[in-house]
Design a protein around this nucleic acid. Structure first.
Length: 493
RNA sequence: GUCCCCAUCGUCUAGUGGCCUAGGACGCUGCCCUUUCACGGCGGUAACGCGGGUUCGAACCCCGCUGGGGAUACCA
């Protein structure tokens, strides 16, 4: 197959994180772009777990990765849980494959053992830098004789396995940056297998891309400088029959955090779990992340993952780094909260109310009925789901606690008057409540709306800010409202 | 040090030689709407890093500089 003449359905991309720590939004951005690209062209999205670093990988992180993609709706066609014809999809289960490939590579002369110790390497690197030479590995063990190998072994030394670079320059046409070239002398022989026999990323990543028939590698800019090595390895892999072609590479821009640094765990907003806890909608997070390095080009910034996939092309990916802006992300989340249906929003908000103890788990039929009435009132007031409990908890309590500092001048008079007229009201609807109160307080007593309704709001909701007052009173019902008014009057007397 | 990447409002971006006295969004901000808070509407603020070319014409092409980032691992 000629890599340049692929049909859409031939295209295979992958997302291959290491399960170290919590999922990170920069990583999710990479997953999103790969997913969108695959979906746009009708190709295959492969999910692979690169757990070759036993010291740092964990089962919890592995599970977190699965949960993250599932929550976000970034469905994968091959990978953990779903399988596929190129599995297993966890590198920790592919040890025999790497061993087999290594022996093929070794047999063909592409590798050699290197006995240099870390100390020796450091010392030589320092000298190279002093002499303004390229500081990478200098090829010391490239052509060891059998006698020298035996001597090292007799000495008790263990060897890493290095890849023998071909000595040619490397040029590729980066999918997002255009033609890129590295001179041969700047990409030294690199380590494929640790002295203890563990294969390294430098080996397993290209090997799995080859075996899994990956056609397009879209990854972070941080991996740009390792591309020449992978190109060299791929040539060797093709030679020994492991790879049938070398994939095309595209390097996505960094996602930056505070202070011109790559977004790190320290940055607020870097952990995916925060978005779940604070109540961001998955499509909103994805919508924002899409804007970090890609745009539709028509000033449209509000779109669903599906709409993104429909419009996604590599030509529109921007090469320059983007700073993560939580404020804008939150604004888009607010847009999404307003955009979904009331029923959807109720479903999203319930877990937050349960957690806060505002409603029972699961909510009672009465609570659900209240929610049906209350959620429309707060839909345009929410930028995160986590803000909901505080906004409507007063609708689910028997009494509300009131901070005395909230009472304004003249509150008592307003409350007494309100209680009196409301006690005699005929229909308890927000319209009639409003017109009665307006006629009595504003027009009758000449009190400004702010001072007329402010105290009532405080008495009813316990807060200075709340959902619309009269609608809230309607939901609460006449009895509770009158109770709260008289309770407030008692404390103020 | 060496190599590589990047360069438009504070931030994300549109812009691929004339449509640009540079457009949109977030932020900030003024006004309107208004029972609070929001939402919404109408405005405002604010950018092509610098210097050379190429061209009738450059944000757009080329070179240099500067600035920022990354790599230079038995991490990924």
């Amino acid at each position: 197959m000629n890599i340049k003449e692929l049909q859409g359905s031939d295209i295979r991309v992958r997302f291959c994180p290491s399960p170290t720590g919590n999922p990170h939004v920069g990583m999710i951005r990479t997953a999103l772009f790969n997913w969108a690209f695959a979906r746009h062209v009708g190709g295959t999205f492969v999910f692979r777990i690169e757990d070759t670093d036993a010291a740092r990988d964990s089962q919890e992180s592995y599970q977190a990765l699965l949960d993250a993609l599932s929550w976000l709706g970034l469905d994968w066609d091959e990978g953990p849980e779903v399988g596929g014809e190129y599995g297993p999809y966890r590198q920790s289960e592919r040890g025999d494959i790497y061993a087999r490939v290594m022996s093929q590579l070794t047999e063909a002369g592409y590798t050699y053992p290197c006995y240099c110790s870390a100390e020796e390497l450091d010392a030589r690197r320092e000298i190279a830098m002093k002499e303004k030479r390229t500081p990478g590995y200098d090829g010391q063990c490239r052509n060891l004789s059998q006698a020298e190998v035996d001597a090292y072994e007799a000495d008790g030394r263990s060897a890493v396995i290095r890849f023998r670079m071909p000595g040619s320059d490397f040029t590729w046409n980066d999918l997002v940056r255009g033609e890129l070239t590295f001179k041969a002398e700047h990409v030294p022989d690199f380590v494929l297998v640790r002295a203890n026999g563990d294969p390294l990323y430098t080996l397993v990543n290209p090997v799995d891309d080859a075996l899994m028939k990956i056609t397009h590698v879209l990854r972070g800019e941080d991996l740009l400088s390792s591309t020449p090595r992978q190109l060299a390895l791929f040539a060797a892999l093709e030679d020994v029959g492991v790879a049938s072609y070398t994939p095309l590479y595209g390097h996505l821009p960094y996602v930056m955090g505070e202070g011109n640094k790559k977004l790190s765990k320290r940055d607020p907003g870097s952990a995916l779990s925060m978005y779940q806890e604070e109540g961001y909608l998955p499509q909103a997070l994805l919508n924002y992340l899409a804007l970090l390095g890609w745009s539709m080009g028509n000033d449209v910034e509000f779109f669903s993952p599906q709409e993104m996939a429909t419009a996604f092309t590599l030509e529109r990916v921007n090469p320059n780094p983007a700073r993560f802006d939580l404020k804008k992300c939150t604004a888009i989340n607010g847009d999404w909260i307003r955009h979904i249906s009331q029923q959807e929003l109720i479903g999203h908000v319930i877990p937050f109310l349960e957690n806060a103890g505002v409603v029972t788990s699961p909510p009672t039929p009465e609570q659900l009925e209240t929610l049906n009435l209350a959620v429309p009132l707060i839909q345009e007031r929410l930028d995160k789901l986590s803000a909901a409990p505080e906004l409507i908890s007063f609708l689910f309590k028997d009494v509300v606690a009131i901070d005395p500092a909230l009472w304004s001048e003249g509150a008592l008079e307003v409350l007494i008057e309100s209680e009196t007229v409301l006690a005699g009201i005929e229909s308890w609807s927000h319209d009639s409540i409003q017109s009665l109160l307006k006629a009595t307080l504003v027009e009758g007593l000449g009190i400004k709306p702010k001072f007329a309704f402010g105290p009532i709001r405080t008495a009813i909701t316990g807060h200075k800010i709340s959902p619309p007052l009269f609608e809230s009173m309607e939901i609460l019902g006449k009895e509770i409202c009158l109770d709260r008014l008289s309770a407030a009057i008692e404390t103020l007397k």
